[in-house]
Design a protein around this nucleic acid. Structure first.
Lengths: 189, 189
DNA sequence: ACCTGAACACCGTTCAAGT
DNA sequence: ACCTGAACACCGTTCAAGT
């Protein structure tokens, strides 16, 4: 319940997320963020250790949800039903609540994925998720298919250009295509 | 035949491509590049208008090849055979000659895609290629599948983790998975 | 034609100091 | 606890000047 006014930290996060998404991470300077909030650049360093720690701060719950998913998948049998359930839950998480905003940030800042700490963690989680999705089928094709199902969920944001399409429809299409890919994993019945 | 020694321009390109791939674009300074070549930073500006023009210079033939592909596809009927041929040619181009080096640069610098002029052009060409791949089937699912076939070719570089796998095998797997996706486009026979 | 030296405005980061 | 002022080293870019 401690939010009152003040909450400079939260205001920094909000402004940073907005500007990073609009203009990109590298092109947004701390001076710009500080000016919007009527504080000095140095003030930002009281709340965050560095520029990319601001990113980490709003990427962290995304990481937590992915960790939960990975852990849950580990307890399930390596069947098609599990894979379907896993990608479904993943899509739910990506399309729900505050996350679409963070999602758009990621779409805008794909390149930042490499250098930033938060980006490397995201990449690692994606590979772990993909690993769960192809568990039980260690062929190269299965590994590729697993990664592509995740991409299906992500790229539905920009790949589908049908005008007036809703987020729900995007999600449905993404899952439809993902399911086809998943069905080809472990055909060793 | 004008290469002799000298060729400072070519040496800049070589060193830049190497460092950008190793450390990333943003983390590589012009000072670093200049020092390796025993020239001053300002000398780089005699050969290139800006830092991202260095990137453009070695991304340009990639763009040209993509343009050729797009143009060729436009002259062909919108059939599965055309789509297969198109993605096959695309994979050939991506895996052949000098391009794998540039490809690794792109894998390392995905984020740079957004801000850099060269990156935006690449994105645009990818969407145009995807558009050719889904021509004749304007459902959202087809658009998504088309984009994913291109990703299949790209992500085979890192998604397949089988040790000791060759580039040829990667390409083969990528095309196999791509073909499955393409087969689902235009089932309105 | 090819390159240098020196300057420019700006960047992220640090830190002593103020309240 | 929260923020400022001033400085730090470094960045990409420009430009007059040299050969």
């Amino acid at each position: 319940m401690r939010e009152s006014t003040g909450g400079t930290r939260e205001r920094i996060q909000a402004v940073a997320l907005e500007l990073f998404t609009e203009q990109g991470y590298e092109k947004t300077s701390l001076r710009e963020i500080a000016e919007r909030l009527n504080v000095t650049k140095a003030a930002l360093y009281y709340h965050f250790k560095s520029k990319d720690e601001i990113v980490s701060s709003f990427v962290d719950d995304r990481l937590r949800r992915m960790d939960e998913l990975i852990e849950w998948a580990g307890t399930q049998p390596a069947t098609l039903a599990t894979r379907r359930e896993l990608i479904g839950r993943y899509a739910d998480a990506m399309f729900a609540g505050e996350l679409p905003t963070v999602m758009r940030f990621f779409e805008q800042n794909q390149t930042v994925l490499k250098s930033l700490a938060a980006g490397q963690q995201m990449r690692e989680r994606m590979m772990r998720l993909a690993h769960e999705l192809s568990r039980g089928d260690d062929t190269p094709a299965a590994q590729l298919r697993a990664v592509l199902t995740l991409f299906a969920v992500h790229s539905s944001w920009f790949a589908v250009r049908t005008p007036g399409i809703t987020d729900d429809e995007r999600k449905k299409i993404a899952l439809e295509v993902a399911d086809e890919l998943l069905a080809k994993i472990t055909d060793e019945s």
